[in-house]
């Protein structure tokens, strides 16, 4: 066993690009699910419209990258309005089904032959974020970082931008959730009718929450797309939303830093299990699965982890007992 590579890979994943992507998705979900109690199961749809917003603007319509970013964010707002206007009056489980269906509709449309003229069909679009890559101040070919955290120049640039975005979003959530605005949101999560009886416009607050969380999800999708320079429809399947929920619940819903810690730990654990399983298989310790199957085993562990967390620690690994005692509703 090569423990050095296990730890190095794990630590790199801990602060890596996937952690940034899922931190952003989960910060958005935290606003929806953690604070407002909205069961949005279509978060990946927001990521998709953000990513495709920027990719199509640049590739298909030859607009500048910055305009593409603006369009991507607006697409997030538009999706939130489109979804929210009719569905926010629905019961929680109906909203879950409606949003998951909407995100699947988006994916099927993005990959359809009929729209491939604009979307690139099932192959998606590539090389639309050269502006982002060219802004990179780091020297190509050089390595940056310290200890195990050594990254190539493009990754260093992406990580710098990514974690800055995460930091800004965290600050935004922190400010909002300690304000009276956040108090109303939490009240709606606890009991809509109570909030209504105290003169709060529940529908409008839910809409604001859906838009805000959705736009942060779109930002995540955009970041991921810009950093990989590609969008592919099948990368926006419902599994991504489910993983974002796993991230959120791992770190603790309704906590400002919950989604960020969740994303870091999630990818750390996923990387470790992948490397360990991979080495066990290639060294012949495990014979009943192949190395390509070992990659899937970690997804099984995500599912198992989500079940165990929800059963034993629904408040997340850092949550407090006192709060969970109230959950026996």
């Amino acid at each position: 066993m090569d423990f050095n590579s296990i730890v190095t890979n794990g630590l790199q994943a801990f602060v890596g690009l996937d952690a940034v992507y899922f931190a952003l998705l989960a910060i958005g979900l935290n606003i929806h699910f953690g604070y407002a109690g909205l069961l949005n199961f279509g978060q990946v749809g927001f990521a998709a419209v953000g990513a495709y917003g920027v990719a199509m603007s640049v590739t298909t319509f030859h607009l500048p990258f910055a305009v593409g970013v603006a369009i991507g964010l607006l697409a997030g707002v538009a999706l939130a309005l489109l979804l929210g206007l009719p569905t926010l009056r629905l019961r929680a489980d109906y909203l879950a089904i409606a949003t998951i269906a909407a995100s699947e509709i988006l994916r099927l449309c993005f990959r359809s032959v009929a729209l491939s003229k604009w979307t690139g069909g099932s192959d998606g679009l590539n090389q639309f974020a050269n502006t982002f890559a060219n802004l990179n101040p780091f020297t190509p070919g050089a390595k940056y970082g310290f200890g195990p955290f050594v990254f190539s120049a493009p990754d260093t640039w992406s990580l710098l931008v990514g974690w800055t975005l995460v930091g800004l979003c965290v600050l935004l959530v922190f400010l909002l959730m300690r304000s009276p605005w956040g108090r109303v949101l939490k009240a709606i999560r606890e009991d809509e009718d109570a909030a209504r009886s105290l003169g709060k416009n529940v529908y409008w607050y839910k809409m604001q929450a859906l838009i805000l969380g959705g736009v942060i999800g779109s930002l995540g999708g955009m970041f991921d797309a810009a950093q990989t320079q590609s969008v592919q429809p099948d990368n926006y399947g419902t599994t991504i939303t489910f993983f974002a929920y796993a991230v959120l619940i791992l770190g603790g819903a309704a906590r400002v830093l919950g989604p960020v810690l969740g994303a870091m730990i999630f990818w750390f654990l996923l990387s470790i299990t992948e490397t360990v399983l991979g080495q066990l298989v290639s060294n012949g310790y495990i014979t009943f699965i192949t190395s390509s199957q070992a990659g899937k085993v970690r997804f099984m562990l995500v599912g198992l982890g989500l079940i165990l967390l929800m059963v034993f620690r629904p408040q997340g690994i850092f949550g407090n007992r006192r709060e969970i005692a109230l959950d026996a509703r």
Binding site: K296, M300, I307, M310
Partner: peptide, 21 residues
């Protein structure tokens, strides 16, 4: 019920990849 819904999602992921493997 919402916690159970999320648990069923976990179970879905677990079972799906178990089947795939």
């Amino acid at each position: 019920l919402i916690a159970m819904l999320v648990i069923s999602i976990g179970l879905s992921i677990l079972a799906r990849y178990l089947i795939q493997v």
